[in-house]
C-alpha cells in the first residue's frame, strides 16, 4: 500500500502526462517520463516512449465530443501505471523514484493557472407516481434532475 503522498503523486503524474500531450511541454516531459519508467533499461524506456506516443496520438485523434472522456480514461491509466511502478520498488528505491518523479513533473509539467472542470450538482429527479381519481394511473417524474441547482465554481488558482 502506498502512502497518501505517493498516491497523490501518482494521481498528479497521470494527469500531468495527459495534460502535457499536444503542448510545448510534451517533448521534454515525454522523454523524462520514459526515462523514469525505463529505470536504466533502454528497451523498457523505448516501450514507454511508444506508449506515450500512443497517448499523444489518442488525444489528437479523439473527436471533440470524446476528448474529455478519453483524457479522463488515459489519466487514470497512467496514474495506475505509476502506482504499479512505485509499488514494485523497495522502500529506498521507492523514495528515490518518487523524488525523481516529483522533480521531473516540477520541471516539465505544463504550468499556468489550474483550469479544472467545474463541479456540478444534481438535485431532484425523484419520480412521483400519480393517481387519477383513486386508481394509480400514470407515473410522472418531477423536478429536473438534469439541471438542478447551479454549478459550483472552482477557483482558478495559478
Amino acid at each position: 500500500m502506498l502512502d497518501q503522498a505517493l498516491t497523490a503523486l501518482a494521481a498528479s503524474g497521470g494527469t500531468a502526462v495527459v495534460t502535457a500531450a499536444g503542448t510545448d511541454a510534451w517533448v521534454g516531459l515525454r522523454q523524462a517520463v520514459a526515462r523514469w519508467f525505463g529505470r536504466s533499461d533502454v528497451q523498457r524506456e523505448q516501450a514507454e516512449l511508444e506508449r506515450l506516443d500512443q497517448t499523444g496520438a489518442a488525444m489528437r485523434a479523439a473527436a471533440p465530443a470524446e476528448a474529455e472522456r478519453a483524457r479522463i480514461r488515459l489519466e487514470a491509466s497512467w496514474q495506475a501505471r505509476i502506482e504499479a511502478v512505485l509499488e514494485s520498488l523497495s522502500e529506498s528505491e521507492r523514495d528515490q523514484a518518487a523524488d525523481q518523479l516529483r522533480g521531473l513533473l516540477a520541471q516539465h509539467a505544463p504550468q499556468g493557472p489550474v483550469t479544472a472542470g467545474q463541479g456540478g450538482l444534481a438535485v431532484g429527479g425523484n419520480i412521483d407516481i400519480r393517481a387519477d381519481g383513486g386508481s394509480i394511473a400514470a407515473g410522472v417524474i418531477h423536478g429536473g434532475a438534469h439541471t438542478g441547482p447551479p454549478p459550483l465554481p472552482d477557483p482558478s488558482q495559478g
Binding site: 494527469t15 499556468g112 489550474v114 483550469t115
Partner: peptide, 23 residues
C-alpha cells in the same frame, strides 16, 4: 479530476517558481 489538476498545477508552478523559471 478537478483536485488532481489543481495538484498538477501547483507542481508545475513550484517548478516554474523555484527551479526552472524559463521552462
Amino acid at each position: 479530476i478537478t483536485a488532481k489538476r489543481n495538484l498538477v498545477g501547483w507542481q508545475g508552478e513550484a517548478g516554474n517558481t523555484h527551479d526552472h523559471p524559463s521552462t
